[in-house]
Computed example of a mutant assay.
Amino acid sequence: MKYFNLKTENNFNSAILYAANVIKIGGVVAFPTETVYGLGADVLNEEAVKKIFAAKGRQADNPLIVHIADKNDIFKLAKNIPDWVIGLTDKYWPGPLSIVLEKQDFIPSAVTAGLESVAIRMPDNIVASELIKKSGCFIAAPSANKSGRPSPTKAQHVMADFKDEIDVVLDYDNSAIGLESTVIDGRGNYPIILRPGAVTIEMLIETCGYAESAYNKSLDIKKPLSPGMKYTHYKPKAEVLIVYGETSLMAEKINDLYKKNKNIALFSSDKLAEKTKVQKVITYQGINEAANLFYDALRLFDEQNIEIIICEEFDYKDIGEAIMNRLKKAAGEKYL
């Protein structure tokens, strides 16, 4: 595995060109995006795509998202695209929005998990954009972590999960958002959210007039349309518990647990943390900072061999809904 620190690399372009050539010849490259780090390969190289699944230990029926660097490439990858979808791409691309559409016939089934649909995204990150452009390929990429583990928001997270299974790691800024993209089904008359993210249902309703959430409903997930719908995701090694309620009552529950087990950690607001006796704490100032720190906190606590991670519940609004989607999966929906 070759590592490039693009924050200090004297020749940014040469590192990108090296990684782009690896993509061209069928290799696998970890690269930053504004959401989380991705693990990419040439969409049209089915053997390269299979390397992603092998490296991650990912199930073959879990589709990948195709990353592009030009909005107009949506027409090369998908067909029968509704007008309202183009309106969304005009507003939110580049950005944290992936759109499931009817795929063009040339897209390999390994990318789409055998489905007739494909998820497409245009990332808002200079490294991702340049890598796609310089490679001359559309890049299929899930998050750059072992399947089931917390997603990576730093290159160090990628390197903790992989050794020689991948070819290149491009280290740039930490992910600005810290959660995976919103995924919507774009094949109907309005957006249906399959996975929540930074583009919220409120934003979609404002743009399209109507939107629905389907990720928390009873769906046929034997053939998931989007990553994050079927398998265990986002889990650290430690047990995760969610705590909710009035601040003093939450603090009382946490302190009662701390009396029994000192090897616990807390991810919460400053307001709650100040009322507990827990020593290992990561706090946030607002909902966006919480999203940015969430996966990093889970991984940091794992490095410290914490047994139980307690996370304060978030309001189901704005990006809080996306955090709760990940948190409930990490905790197996277990509450303190």
Rank of each mutant, 00 (worst) to 15 (best):
L6F: 01
K7P: 08
N10H: 11
N10Q: 09
V22Y: 09
G26V: 01
V28Y: 00
A30S: 06
T33Q: 01
E34Q: 00
T35G: 03
V36D: 06
V36G: 05
Y37E: 02
D42L: 01
E47Y: 05
K51N: 01
A60Y: 12
D61M: 03
I65V: 11
I65L: 01
V66F: 11
A69Y: 04
D70Q: 05
I74C: 11
A78P: 14
W84L: 05
V85Y: 13
I86Q: 13
I86R: 13
T89K: 05
D90Y: 10
P96W: 01
L97M: 08
K103S: 07
F106H: 14
I107G: 08
V111L: 06
G114M: 09
S117G: 08
R121F: 02
D124P: 01
I126G: 00
S129I: 10
G136R: 01
R149H: 11
P150Y: 08
T153M: 03
S175P: 02
G178Y: 09
L179V: 09
S181L: 02
V183A: 07
D185A: 10
R187W: 07
P191G: 05
P191E: 10
T200V: 03
T200L: 10
E212T: 07
S213I: 06
A214I: 04
Y215E: 03
M229A: 10
K230D: 14
Y234P: 13
L249G: 00
D256Y: 15
N261I: 12
K271R: 15
L272Y: 14
K275E: 14
K277R: 15
V281Q: 15
N288S: 15
N292Y: 11
Y295T: 12
E307K: 15
I308G: 13
I323N: 03
I323S: 06
M324S: 08
R326K: 06
K328E: 08
L336M: 08
